[in-house]
Design a protein around this nucleic acid. Structure first.
Lengths: 215, 215
DNA sequence: GACAAAATTCAACAAATGTTGAAAACTGGG
DNA sequence: CCCAGTTTTCAACATTTGTTGAATTTTGTC
Protein backbone atom coordinates (compact mmCIF):
# COMPACT_ATOMS: atom_id res chain seq x y z
CA UNK A 1 0.00 0.00 0.00
CA UNK A 2 1.22 3.44 -0.95
CA UNK A 3 2.58 5.54 1.89
CA UNK A 4 0.15 8.33 1.11
CA UNK A 5 -2.72 5.92 1.56
CA UNK A 6 -1.96 4.58 5.01
CA UNK A 7 -4.12 7.20 6.63
CA UNK A 8 -7.86 7.21 6.09
CA UNK A 9 -9.21 9.26 3.24
CA UNK A 10 -10.82 11.64 5.69
CA UNK A 11 -7.48 12.30 7.35
CA UNK A 12 -5.75 12.64 4.02
CA UNK A 13 -8.19 15.38 3.06
CA UNK A 14 -7.38 17.21 6.29
CA UNK A 15 -3.66 16.78 5.69
CA UNK A 16 -3.84 18.09 2.16
CA UNK A 17 -6.11 20.98 3.12
CA UNK A 18 -3.80 21.86 6.01
CA UNK A 19 -0.76 22.11 3.79
CA UNK A 20 -2.43 23.94 0.93
CA UNK A 21 -4.37 26.41 3.09
CA UNK A 22 -1.16 27.22 4.94
CA UNK A 23 0.64 27.92 1.68
CA UNK A 24 -2.01 29.81 -0.27
CA UNK A 25 -4.70 30.89 2.17
CA UNK A 26 -8.38 30.06 2.17
CA UNK A 27 -9.21 31.55 -1.21
CA UNK A 28 -6.00 30.46 -2.90
CA UNK A 29 -6.93 26.80 -2.75
CA UNK A 30 -9.69 24.89 -4.53
CA UNK A 31 -11.44 21.79 -3.27
CA UNK A 32 -10.22 20.06 -6.39
CA UNK A 33 -6.59 20.80 -5.58
CA UNK A 34 -7.08 19.44 -2.11
CA UNK A 35 -8.76 16.31 -3.43
CA UNK A 36 -6.02 15.81 -5.99
CA UNK A 37 -3.25 16.08 -3.41
CA UNK A 38 -5.13 13.71 -1.11
CA UNK A 39 -5.70 11.32 -4.02
CA UNK A 40 -9.40 11.35 -3.36
CA UNK A 41 -12.59 12.17 -5.26
CA UNK A 42 -13.72 15.79 -5.24
CA UNK A 43 -17.10 15.07 -3.73
CA UNK A 44 -15.60 13.34 -0.74
CA UNK A 45 -14.53 16.57 0.89
CA UNK A 46 -18.08 17.85 0.87
CA UNK A 47 -19.38 14.52 2.13
CA UNK A 48 -17.10 14.48 5.15
CA UNK A 49 -16.89 18.15 6.02
CA UNK A 50 -19.69 20.04 4.28
CA UNK A 51 -18.90 23.52 2.95
CA UNK A 52 -15.37 24.65 2.16
CA UNK A 53 -15.39 26.95 5.15
CA UNK A 54 -16.33 24.05 7.41
CA UNK A 55 -13.39 22.07 6.10
CA UNK A 56 -11.17 25.02 6.91
CA UNK A 57 -12.51 25.13 10.45
CA UNK A 58 -12.05 21.39 10.83
CA UNK A 59 -8.40 21.74 9.85
CA UNK A 60 -7.96 24.54 12.36
CA UNK A 61 -9.68 22.70 15.18
CA UNK A 62 -7.97 19.33 14.70
CA UNK A 63 -4.77 20.37 16.43
CA UNK A 64 -5.92 23.42 18.37
CA UNK A 65 -6.96 21.55 21.49
CA UNK A 66 -3.84 19.41 21.49
CA UNK A 67 -1.74 22.53 21.32
CA UNK A 68 -3.65 24.23 24.09
CA UNK A 69 -3.14 21.25 26.37
CA UNK A 70 0.57 21.08 25.71
CA UNK A 71 1.08 24.75 26.36
CA UNK A 72 -1.04 24.74 29.49
CA UNK A 73 0.93 21.79 30.76
CA UNK A 74 4.18 23.68 30.12
CA UNK A 75 2.87 26.68 32.04
CA UNK A 76 1.72 24.61 35.00
CA UNK A 77 5.03 22.77 35.10
CA UNK A 78 7.11 25.94 35.17
CA UNK A 79 4.80 27.38 37.82
CA UNK A 80 5.09 24.32 40.03
CA UNK A 81 8.86 24.41 39.71
CA UNK A 82 9.06 27.98 40.93
CA UNK A 83 8.64 29.29 44.45
CA UNK A 84 5.74 31.28 45.82
CA UNK A 85 6.79 34.39 43.90
CA UNK A 86 6.07 32.56 40.63
CA UNK A 87 8.26 31.88 37.60
CA UNK A 88 10.44 34.50 35.94
CA UNK A 89 9.44 36.30 32.76
CA UNK A 90 11.87 34.23 30.74
CA UNK A 91 10.51 30.96 32.12
CA UNK A 92 6.97 31.97 31.23
CA UNK A 93 7.92 32.97 27.69
CA UNK A 94 9.75 29.70 27.35
CA UNK A 95 6.69 27.74 28.43
CA UNK A 96 4.61 29.70 25.94
CA UNK A 97 6.93 29.10 23.01
CA UNK A 98 8.80 25.82 23.37
CA UNK A 99 5.81 23.55 22.79
CA UNK A 100 5.48 25.15 19.38
CA UNK A 101 9.09 24.46 18.56
CA UNK A 102 8.65 20.85 19.66
CA UNK A 103 5.74 20.34 17.30
CA UNK A 104 7.46 22.08 14.42
CA UNK A 105 10.24 19.53 14.83
CA UNK A 106 7.73 16.71 15.00
CA UNK A 107 8.31 13.91 12.51
CA UNK A 108 4.79 14.51 11.24
CA UNK A 109 5.18 17.46 8.86
CA UNK A 110 1.48 18.18 9.35
CA UNK A 111 2.34 20.11 12.48
CA UNK A 112 4.68 22.38 10.57
CA UNK A 113 1.95 23.07 8.03
CA UNK A 114 -0.62 23.59 10.75
CA UNK A 115 1.44 26.19 12.54
CA UNK A 116 2.07 28.00 9.28
CA UNK A 117 -1.70 28.06 8.88
CA UNK A 118 -2.06 29.53 12.35
CA UNK A 119 0.38 32.24 11.30
CA UNK A 120 -1.73 32.98 8.24
CA UNK A 121 -4.87 33.21 10.32
CA UNK A 122 -3.33 35.28 13.08
CA UNK A 123 -2.04 37.83 10.59
CA UNK A 124 -5.27 38.10 8.65
CA UNK A 125 -7.46 41.15 9.29
CA UNK A 126 -10.60 39.12 8.70
CA UNK A 127 -9.83 35.69 10.17
CA UNK A 128 -7.54 36.80 12.97
CA UNK A 129 -10.02 38.21 15.41
CA UNK A 130 -12.63 35.53 15.08
CA UNK A 131 -10.79 32.22 15.08
CA UNK A 132 -7.74 33.04 17.15
CA UNK A 133 -9.64 34.82 19.89
CA UNK A 134 -12.18 32.09 20.22
CA UNK A 135 -9.78 29.19 20.57
CA UNK A 136 -6.53 30.62 21.90
CA UNK A 137 -7.37 33.63 24.03
CA UNK A 138 -8.36 31.65 27.13
CA UNK A 139 -4.89 30.15 27.22
CA UNK A 140 -3.20 33.44 26.37
CA UNK A 141 -5.02 35.08 29.24
CA UNK A 142 -3.53 32.57 31.66
CA UNK A 143 -0.05 33.37 30.43
CA UNK A 144 -0.71 37.06 30.76
CA UNK A 145 -1.85 36.57 34.34
CA UNK A 146 1.43 34.80 35.04
CA UNK A 147 3.35 37.65 33.41
CA UNK A 148 1.54 40.21 35.55
CA UNK A 149 2.77 38.39 38.64
CA UNK A 150 6.31 38.26 37.31
CA UNK A 151 6.22 41.99 36.52
CA UNK A 152 4.78 43.61 39.63
CA UNK A 153 3.79 47.23 39.16
CA UNK A 154 3.63 46.97 35.40
CA UNK A 155 0.78 48.75 33.66
CA UNK A 156 -1.69 46.26 32.24
CA UNK A 157 -1.69 48.12 28.96
CA UNK A 158 2.08 47.74 28.65
CA UNK A 159 1.86 44.01 29.12
CA UNK A 160 -0.69 43.67 26.35
CA UNK A 161 1.43 45.67 23.95
CA UNK A 162 4.44 43.53 24.80
CA UNK A 163 2.38 40.43 24.18
CA UNK A 164 1.42 41.92 20.83
CA UNK A 165 5.11 42.12 19.93
CA UNK A 166 5.67 38.58 21.11
CA UNK A 167 2.76 37.36 19.04
CA UNK A 168 4.09 39.09 15.94
CA UNK A 169 7.59 37.70 16.25
CA UNK A 170 6.18 34.25 16.84
CA UNK A 171 3.78 34.51 13.92
CA UNK A 172 6.53 35.31 11.44
CA UNK A 173 8.55 32.38 12.76
CA UNK A 174 5.60 30.06 12.30
CA UNK A 175 4.99 31.33 8.79
CA UNK A 176 8.39 30.11 7.57
CA UNK A 177 8.52 32.57 4.73
CA UNK A 178 12.19 31.93 4.09
CA UNK A 179 12.86 35.61 3.87
CA UNK A 180 15.57 35.60 6.52
CA UNK A 181 17.41 32.95 4.53
CA UNK A 182 17.73 35.28 1.62
CA UNK A 183 18.38 38.40 3.65
CA UNK A 184 21.13 36.78 5.70
CA UNK A 185 22.59 35.10 2.61
CA UNK A 186 22.09 31.65 4.11
CA UNK A 187 23.48 32.48 7.54
CA UNK A 188 20.05 31.88 9.12
CA UNK A 189 17.42 29.43 7.98
CA UNK A 190 13.65 29.66 8.51
CA UNK A 191 13.59 25.93 9.03
CA UNK A 192 16.14 26.06 11.87
CA UNK A 193 13.50 26.25 14.57
CA UNK A 194 15.93 25.66 17.38
CA UNK A 195 17.92 28.74 16.46
CA UNK A 196 14.75 30.77 15.94
CA UNK A 197 13.39 30.05 19.43
CA UNK A 198 16.77 30.24 21.14
CA UNK A 199 17.02 33.79 19.87
CA UNK A 200 13.36 34.68 20.28
CA UNK A 201 13.00 33.77 23.94
CA UNK A 202 15.67 36.05 25.44
CA UNK A 203 14.76 38.74 22.92
CA UNK A 204 11.15 38.80 24.02
CA UNK A 205 11.96 38.50 27.71
CA UNK A 206 14.26 41.50 27.51
CA UNK A 207 11.56 43.47 25.74
CA UNK A 208 9.03 42.76 28.47
CA UNK A 209 11.47 43.72 31.19
CA UNK A 210 12.47 46.98 29.56
CA UNK A 211 8.91 48.12 28.80
CA UNK A 212 7.18 46.81 31.92
CA UNK A 213 9.71 47.82 34.54
CA UNK A 214 9.48 51.26 36.06
CA UNK A 215 12.56 53.38 35.37
CA UNK B 1 -18.63 65.82 -8.40
CA UNK B 2 -18.70 62.90 -6.02
CA UNK B 3 -15.78 62.66 -3.63
CA UNK B 4 -14.97 59.15 -4.83
CA UNK B 5 -14.63 60.47 -8.35
CA UNK B 6 -12.13 63.23 -7.82
CA UNK B 7 -9.24 60.91 -8.53
CA UNK B 8 -8.78 59.45 -11.99
CA UNK B 9 -10.35 56.11 -12.70
CA UNK B 10 -6.91 54.55 -12.94
CA UNK B 11 -6.07 55.76 -9.46
CA UNK B 12 -9.43 54.68 -8.12
CA UNK B 13 -8.76 51.16 -9.35
CA UNK B 14 -5.44 51.14 -7.52
CA UNK B 15 -7.08 52.50 -4.38
CA UNK B 16 -9.82 49.89 -4.39
CA UNK B 17 -7.42 47.06 -5.19
CA UNK B 18 -5.12 48.22 -2.41
CA UNK B 19 -7.83 48.11 0.20
CA UNK B 20 -9.39 44.84 -0.91
CA UNK B 21 -6.12 42.98 -1.44
CA UNK B 22 -5.01 44.05 2.03
CA UNK B 23 -8.21 42.73 3.56
CA UNK B 24 -8.69 39.47 1.69
CA UNK B 25 -5.39 38.65 -0.03
CA UNK B 26 -4.72 38.17 -3.71
CA UNK B 27 -7.09 35.27 -4.28
CA UNK B 28 -9.81 36.57 -1.99
CA UNK B 29 -10.63 39.46 -4.28
CA UNK B 30 -12.17 39.49 -7.74
CA UNK B 31 -11.59 42.07 -10.43
CA UNK B 32 -15.31 42.70 -10.37
CA UNK B 33 -15.25 43.58 -6.67
CA UNK B 34 -12.41 45.98 -7.29
CA UNK B 35 -14.21 47.56 -10.21
CA UNK B 36 -17.41 47.87 -8.21
CA UNK B 37 -15.67 49.59 -5.30
CA UNK B 38 -13.88 51.91 -7.70
CA UNK B 39 -17.16 52.60 -9.52
CA UNK B 40 -15.59 51.62 -12.78
CA UNK B 41 -16.25 49.14 -15.57
CA UNK B 42 -14.75 45.67 -15.11
CA UNK B 43 -12.75 45.76 -18.31
CA UNK B 44 -10.98 48.94 -17.33
CA UNK B 45 -8.71 47.19 -14.86
CA UNK B 46 -7.41 44.92 -17.58
CA UNK B 47 -7.02 47.82 -19.96
CA UNK B 48 -4.87 49.83 -17.57
CA UNK B 49 -2.93 47.11 -15.80
CA UNK B 50 -3.19 43.87 -17.78
CA UNK B 51 -3.44 40.64 -15.82
CA UNK B 52 -4.69 40.51 -12.25
CA UNK B 53 -1.22 39.75 -11.00
CA UNK B 54 0.14 42.83 -12.77
CA UNK B 55 -2.47 44.95 -11.03
CA UNK B 56 -1.34 43.48 -7.73
CA UNK B 57 2.26 44.37 -8.50
CA UNK B 58 1.26 47.86 -9.54
CA UNK B 59 -0.45 48.37 -6.18
CA UNK B 60 2.62 47.12 -4.36
CA UNK B 61 5.02 49.27 -6.34
CA UNK B 62 3.07 52.51 -6.20
CA UNK B 63 4.14 53.35 -2.66
CA UNK B 64 7.21 51.15 -2.24
CA UNK B 65 9.71 53.66 -3.54
CA UNK B 66 8.20 56.52 -1.57
CA UNK B 67 8.48 54.45 1.57
CA UNK B 68 12.06 53.49 0.87
CA UNK B 69 13.03 57.11 0.40
CA UNK B 70 11.41 58.20 3.63
CA UNK B 71 13.05 55.49 5.65
CA UNK B 72 16.46 56.05 4.11
CA UNK B 73 16.13 59.74 4.87
CA UNK B 74 15.30 58.92 8.49
CA UNK B 75 18.37 56.68 8.76
CA UNK B 76 20.68 59.27 7.23
CA UNK B 77 19.30 61.97 9.53
CA UNK B 78 19.84 59.97 12.69
CA UNK B 79 23.32 59.04 11.50
CA UNK B 80 24.24 62.64 10.80
CA UNK B 81 22.99 63.66 14.23
CA UNK B 82 25.22 61.17 16.01
CA UNK B 83 28.95 61.33 16.58
CA UNK B 84 31.62 59.23 14.92
CA UNK B 85 30.60 56.14 16.90
CA UNK B 86 27.23 56.16 15.10
CA UNK B 87 23.67 56.23 16.44
CA UNK B 88 22.42 54.01 19.25
CA UNK B 89 20.39 50.87 18.68
CA UNK B 90 17.24 52.64 19.79
CA UNK B 91 17.78 55.55 17.43
CA UNK B 92 18.26 53.16 14.51
CA UNK B 93 15.12 51.20 15.35
CA UNK B 94 13.25 54.45 15.65
CA UNK B 95 14.43 55.57 12.20
CA UNK B 96 13.35 52.22 10.81
CA UNK B 97 9.87 52.32 12.31
CA UNK B 98 8.64 55.88 12.73
CA UNK B 99 8.17 56.63 9.04
CA UNK B 100 5.67 53.77 8.96
CA UNK B 101 3.74 55.21 11.87
CA UNK B 102 3.69 58.60 10.15
CA UNK B 103 2.16 57.15 7.00
CA UNK B 104 -0.36 55.07 8.94
CA UNK B 105 -1.54 58.31 10.47
CA UNK B 106 -1.66 59.99 7.08
CA UNK B 107 -4.97 61.59 6.19
CA UNK B 108 -5.00 59.41 3.07
CA UNK B 109 -6.31 56.05 4.31
CA UNK B 110 -4.65 54.44 1.31
CA UNK B 111 -1.39 54.31 3.25
CA UNK B 112 -3.01 52.36 6.05
CA UNK B 113 -4.37 49.87 3.54
CA UNK B 114 -1.07 49.67 1.74
CA UNK B 115 0.87 48.83 4.87
CA UNK B 116 -1.66 46.16 5.78
CA UNK B 117 -1.03 44.74 2.33
CA UNK B 118 2.71 44.76 3.01
CA UNK B 119 1.99 42.80 6.18
CA UNK B 120 0.01 40.27 4.20
CA UNK B 121 2.81 39.88 1.69
CA UNK B 122 5.57 39.71 4.26
CA UNK B 123 3.82 36.95 6.16
CA UNK B 124 2.98 34.89 3.10
CA UNK B 125 5.14 31.83 2.42
CA UNK B 126 4.77 32.31 -1.31
CA UNK B 127 4.77 36.08 -1.81
CA UNK B 128 7.07 37.02 1.02
CA UNK B 129 10.40 35.98 -0.36
CA UNK B 130 9.91 37.29 -3.84
CA UNK B 131 8.35 40.73 -3.51
CA UNK B 132 9.71 41.84 -0.15
CA UNK B 133 13.27 40.78 -0.82
CA UNK B 134 13.35 42.43 -4.18
CA UNK B 135 12.09 45.83 -3.13
CA UNK B 136 12.91 46.21 0.56
CA UNK B 137 16.05 44.21 1.26
CA UNK B 138 18.48 46.82 -0.07
CA UNK B 139 17.16 49.27 2.51
CA UNK B 140 17.01 46.66 5.27
CA UNK B 141 20.64 45.82 4.61
CA UNK B 142 21.62 49.41 5.25
CA UNK B 143 19.85 49.38 8.60
CA UNK B 144 21.52 46.13 9.53
CA UNK B 145 24.91 47.62 8.73
CA UNK B 146 24.11 50.48 11.08
CA UNK B 147 23.06 48.01 13.77
CA UNK B 148 26.31 46.09 13.42
CA UNK B 149 28.19 49.29 14.16
CA UNK B 150 26.00 50.01 17.19
CA UNK B 151 26.50 46.47 18.51
CA UNK B 152 30.25 45.86 18.23
CA UNK B 153 31.26 42.26 18.76
CA UNK B 154 27.81 40.90 18.03
CA UNK B 155 27.56 37.78 15.94
CA UNK B 156 26.12 38.53 12.52
CA UNK B 157 23.74 35.61 12.87
CA UNK B 158 22.33 37.04 16.10
CA UNK B 159 21.61 40.37 14.45
CA UNK B 160 19.66 38.72 11.66
CA UNK B 161 17.56 36.72 14.10
CA UNK B 162 16.84 39.87 16.06
CA UNK B 163 15.82 41.60 12.87
CA UNK B 164 13.52 38.69 12.19
CA UNK B 165 11.78 39.34 15.51
CA UNK B 166 11.56 43.02 14.75
CA UNK B 167 10.06 42.28 11.36
CA UNK B 168 7.45 40.00 12.89
CA UNK B 169 6.35 42.45 15.56
CA UNK B 170 6.15 45.19 12.95
CA UNK B 171 4.21 43.01 10.52
CA UNK B 172 1.50 42.24 13.03
CA UNK B 173 1.22 45.93 13.85
CA UNK B 174 0.83 46.77 10.18
CA UNK B 175 -1.80 44.07 9.71
CA UNK B 176 -4.20 45.74 12.17
CA UNK B 177 -6.02 42.54 12.93
CA UNK B 178 -7.77 44.04 15.92
CA UNK B 179 -6.96 41.00 17.99
CA UNK B 180 -5.28 42.95 20.76
CA UNK B 181 -8.44 45.03 21.12
CA UNK B 182 -10.42 41.96 22.00
CA UNK B 183 -7.72 40.30 24.09
CA UNK B 184 -7.12 43.41 26.20
CA UNK B 185 -10.85 44.08 26.45
CA UNK B 186 -10.50 47.48 24.80
CA UNK B 187 -7.47 48.59 26.81
CA UNK B 188 -5.34 48.62 23.66
CA UNK B 189 -6.44 49.42 20.14
CA UNK B 190 -4.90 48.22 16.88
CA UNK B 191 -5.62 51.60 15.38
CA UNK B 192 -3.69 53.44 18.09
CA UNK B 193 -0.48 53.52 16.10
CA UNK B 194 1.23 55.93 18.42
CA UNK B 195 0.88 53.56 21.34
CA UNK B 196 1.92 50.59 19.23
CA UNK B 197 5.20 52.17 18.12
CA UNK B 198 5.91 53.79 21.47
CA UNK B 199 5.86 50.30 22.97
CA UNK B 200 7.49 48.53 20.06
CA UNK B 201 10.62 50.66 19.81
CA UNK B 202 12.00 50.18 23.34
CA UNK B 203 10.84 46.58 23.29
CA UNK B 204 12.82 45.79 20.16
CA UNK B 205 15.84 47.80 21.23
CA UNK B 206 16.02 45.87 24.51
CA UNK B 207 15.79 42.60 22.63
CA UNK B 208 18.69 43.50 20.38
CA UNK B 209 20.82 44.56 23.29
CA UNK B 210 20.14 41.43 25.32
CA UNK B 211 20.78 39.01 22.47
CA UNK B 212 23.63 40.80 20.76
CA UNK B 213 25.68 41.82 23.77
CA UNK B 214 28.25 39.44 25.16
CA UNK B 215 27.44 38.34 28.71
C1' DG C 1 -23.85 -14.75 2.99
C1' DA C 2 -27.64 -11.27 3.74
C1' DC C 3 -28.30 -6.64 4.60
C1' DA C 4 -28.40 -2.00 6.43
C1' DA C 5 -25.25 1.79 6.90
C1' DA C 6 -21.40 4.22 5.70
C1' DA C 7 -18.10 5.53 2.30
C1' DT C 8 -16.98 6.57 -2.27
C1' DT C 9 -17.57 7.61 -7.16
C1' DC C 10 -19.67 9.71 -11.14
C1' DA C 11 -21.90 13.20 -13.65
C1' DA C 12 -23.86 17.37 -13.74
C1' DC C 13 -25.51 22.03 -12.23
C1' DA C 14 -25.66 27.05 -11.95
C1' DA C 15 -22.85 30.74 -10.71
C1' DA C 16 -18.75 33.28 -10.89
C1' DT C 17 -14.16 34.03 -12.75
C1' DG C 18 -10.36 36.59 -15.69
C1' DT C 19 -9.84 38.16 -20.05
C1' DT C 20 -10.76 39.86 -24.73
C1' DG C 21 -12.44 42.23 -29.03
C1' DA C 22 -15.32 45.42 -31.01
C1' DA C 23 -17.96 49.41 -30.52
C1' DA C 24 -18.66 53.83 -28.47
C1' DA C 25 -17.37 58.08 -26.06
C1' DC C 26 -14.21 61.30 -24.92
C1' DT C 27 -9.83 64.15 -25.51
C1' DG C 28 -6.94 67.76 -27.22
C1' DG C 29 -4.43 69.91 -31.17
C1' DG C 30 -4.67 71.37 -36.07
C1' DC D 1 -15.20 71.20 -37.03
C1' DC D 2 -12.04 67.26 -37.73
C1' DC D 3 -9.81 63.49 -36.53
C1' DA D 4 -6.15 60.53 -34.52
C1' DG D 5 -5.39 58.69 -30.03
C1' DT D 6 -6.83 57.50 -25.72
C1' DT D 7 -10.21 56.03 -22.58
C1' DT D 8 -14.37 53.69 -21.47
C1' DT D 9 -18.26 50.64 -22.13
C1' DC D 10 -20.69 46.58 -23.58
C1' DA D 11 -21.25 41.90 -24.47
C1' DA D 12 -19.47 37.64 -24.71
C1' DC D 13 -16.14 33.71 -24.21
C1' DA D 14 -14.18 29.55 -22.25
C1' DT D 15 -12.84 27.87 -17.65
C1' DT D 16 -13.18 26.99 -13.21
C1' DT D 17 -15.62 27.09 -9.04
C1' DG D 18 -18.33 24.80 -4.91
C1' DT D 19 -21.92 21.82 -4.28
C1' DT D 20 -25.41 18.26 -4.94
C1' DG D 21 -28.11 13.94 -5.96
C1' DA D 22 -28.09 9.52 -7.62
C1' DA D 23 -25.60 5.38 -8.33
C1' DT D 24 -22.10 2.25 -6.82
C1' DT D 25 -18.95 0.09 -3.73
C1' DT D 26 -17.22 -1.05 0.74
C1' DT D 27 -17.85 -2.04 5.63
C1' DG D 28 -19.42 -4.13 9.73
C1' DT D 29 -23.04 -7.05 12.13
C1' DC D 30 -26.13 -10.68 12.65
Amino acid sequence: MNNAQKRSKKERILDAAEELFALHGFDGVTIRQIAAQAQVDVALASYHFGKKRELFDAVFLRRAEILNEERLEALLKCQSESGTEGPSVEKIIEAFLRPLEMEQENADPGWKHYLALVAYINNSPIWGKELMSKYFDPLVTRFIEALKKALPGAKEEDIYWCYHNLSGALTLTLAQTGRIDKLSKGLCKSTDFRAAYDHMIPFIAAGFQRVCTKP
